[in-house]
Design a protein around this nucleic acid. Structure first.
Lengths: 251, 251
DNA sequence: AATTTCTATTTGTATGAGTATATTGGAAGG
DNA sequence: CCTTCCAATATACTCATACAAATAGAAATT
């Protein structure tokens, strides 16, 4: 009975980090380790038996975790050759789960810059499409998101969630599944913006005016204004991030 | 011994569709079924035992396949609740493997249109960044890709591969991992362009001039020209696709 | 030196038993 | 009659073990 109890606590420990299923917990653990550079591209993993024993999980659970990471382009595995980390260029860095893993740890400043640059490419165009194609329902979602932002403020989790909902709604309103798939990437960038701002304690400029300008342009189906107001919103958001100060954009 | 032999043939059959491991084959089979609408969002899958028996594979293999699809955002599974198809908005439609599955079957015209629109957003900006940041090595890759395109022509698989390499090299030359991660998506769109052209037998306008114009702009580090030539390249590519004719762009 | 064959190692697949968890229906309480 | 709570139950999840397949690398052969 003592040993049974020990097993249970060990399992709970393994799954700790957020009450995930074990394979998910292991995938996350390995995934973040890779993202943080503990395992570099080209590195060979230990064998399945050793690895699963060291992590106190069954081989089944460990293998399912590896399958997840393979599906995200981080690993490859072949009999006799073992499982090794793929080059960064093969990683699906825009995968929502992967972005969440990055977001949990200390963010890679270079990648944040990349994400922001992606935002700069995607969102103005998205705003333009949204102004042209949005339905009234989609506009209503933006309305509510903006109201929540105003009510809660960006210092609360609810307010930040509303901010993400607003940008998400714009991408959804493009009626383009490929663009909409980038919602999590854009959302991650949005999230990091406020996080950085908060960390630096530079008490925030009110971001609502920029958002409202975009909103009104989309509501009025004014494509040119939608693009330009979004560009302005991004310019201000970028200015808010100390990344813009400490590392004044390459080129 | 007879039964052993039967087992072997059955397994080989299950894995057929390209000498993949069984879990990969099942993942692909289920994935394409979902993409083709056989299983719609919200649909519940049969239980693990039934499913694995029907497919003549072990629960282990079936479960690993499901893990892959969950990692790509297509499924979700919880004890007692079963495993069900997630709404389309959750699918990672830009995942390279998923694009390959789409590409194998009859393509969804709407999604091709979406992909092309994404190209129109991404590639002009990417060309501009590439003109600014490309290294000589990266330019050399483009040079060779262009040579191969010229040598082989777009009617050969080698030529088409070279076409993709060219566009890939541009994204790589942006030095932006987030943009580079979209290479497979852009590549899929590129690939479909020539496929469609070929299918309609409208014997191809020579695409080399457009490509060379972009190339020279990037070589000369002329950002404005890089953008404008890429826009022109995309305009012509779009015009080539009968999608542009039969379904004359929404809006 | 190049080619082929062998073999040892590693992942892949199968099976069965047992656990954990969330849903659902029903009982207790309002 | 409606709401809240609880327990029964179906389902995925985890584990342990055994065996099969594949392949990288060594060894033998030409």
């Amino acid at each position: 009975m003592g040993s049974e109890r020990k097993d249970v606590t060990e399992r709970k420990f393994a799954a700790e980090e957020g009450s995930l299923r074990i394979h998910q917990a292991i995938a996350r653990q390995l995934g973040t380790a890779i993202l943080m550079g503990v395992h570099k591209p080209g590195d060979l993993f230990e064998g399945e038996i050793e690895a699963s024993e060291r992590l106190h999980v069954s081989r089944t659970a460990y293998r399912e975790a590896v399958r997840i990471l393979i599906a995200k382009g981080m690993l490859e595995s072949r009999p006799k050759a073992g499982t090794r980390v793929l080059p960064r260029s093969r990683w699906n860095v825009l995968d929502p789960e992967m972005l969440a893993w990055m977001f949990a740890g200390e963010p890679d400043r270079d990648f944040i810059r990349d994400l922001f640059e992606l935002r700069g490419v995607i969102e103005p165009a998205a705003a333009e499409f949204a102004a042209r194609r949005r339905t009234d329902d989609q506009l209503a979602v933006m309305t509510r998101a903006l109201e929540d932002m105003e009510k809660c403020g960006l210092s609360t989790p609810e307010g930040r969630a509303a901010d993400q909902r607003f940008h998400h709604a714009i991408l959804a309103a493009t009626h383009n599944d490929a663009l909409a798939a980038l919602a999590s990437s854009v959302g991650a960038a949005v999230s990091w913006t406020t996080t950085f701002k908060h960390r630096k304690k530079l008490l925030p400029r009110d971001p609502l005016p920029d958002h409202k300008a975009v909103y009104h342009a989309i509501a009025a189906r004014d494509t040119a204004a939608a693009r330009s107001t979004m560009v302005e919103l991004l310019r201000l958001a970028l200015a808010d991030m100390d990344i813009a100060l400490s590392e004044p954009l390459r080129d």
